[in-house]
Nucleic acid binder design. Structure first.
Lengths: 123, 123
DNA sequence: TCTATATTTCCATGATTATAGAATTGTCAA
DNA sequence: TTGACAATTCTATAATCATGGAAATATAGA
């Protein structure tokens, strides 16, 4: 991942409403949620939500698909994966430090299984 | 980690000069670098660098210590660790997705050894 | 078609952030 | 002390970002 792309993604997440939107979408992955449902859940005006969705979309953190009159937004896991990879690859101490997330809180099995995998695309 | 703390850290990293400073400090961990050395390496005016160092410091991403006339800045690995933990814990898909950094590009041994470790402080 | 609903764009406004020169503060060496 | 250097704070300015009402643009059903 390029520096500038990482900055775009970090900036997209570094905002209260947008982080809330993203986390809400994660809870509803992989189907996602309609914009109206997001607006209702988070109490955001339409225009404001639309603005933030565009930011998240531009950063590649969410995708959208139309279904009838609704537009569903879903998180793009690969982007978060790439960001975490970038941070561990470029922003963690070479010598000794931790920065190893290893596994998640409540779904350890899957994570552990993948633990030996080398990150293929990292420069 | 609290949401707002994560946002502070993300915002601190989401800026070209600051990310460059942080990455430079990572290269010089754990001793760090004097402000003047950072300014020279990155070609930043003193006042500008000072502004960004304060942001990084406020986010807990760097620490500083005085040594003679110099102030050395060093990265705080624990903060990056906590951020990566927050992202993997709260911002990665529950069902199936990847978001598992597992190991780093060129220092796999240490990482693999820690791969089985559960993240202790995560809610 | 007409109407209702979903979403986005337009726009103005206010707030925050980034930049960097100049002045200031702090530290050391002689 | 004085002088040299390191770093921060002060200050003004420009640029970017966030907010949300109002208007415009879909989409679907009757």
């Amino acid at each position: 991942m390029q520096n500038m792309q990482a900055i775009t993604i970090l900036a997209a997440l570094a905002q209260e409403s947008r982080l809330a939107v993203y986390r809400l979408l994660i809870e509803h992955a992989p189907e996602g949620l309609a914009a109206s449902a997001i607006a209702e859940q988070l109490g955001l005006p339409n225009a404001t939500l639309s603005f933030h969705l565009k930011e998240l979309s531009h950063a590649g953190l969410v995708s959208s698909r139309q279904s009838g009159r609704f537009i569903y937004y879903a998180p793009v896991i690969e982007t978060m994966d790439a960001l975490v990879g970038y941070l561990t690859d470029h922003c963690c101490s070479q010598s000794g430090g931790t920065c190893a997330p290893a596994t998640r809180k409540s779904a350890p099995a899957k994570r552990v299984a993948a633990a030996g995998k080398r990150r293929p695309g990292s420069a």
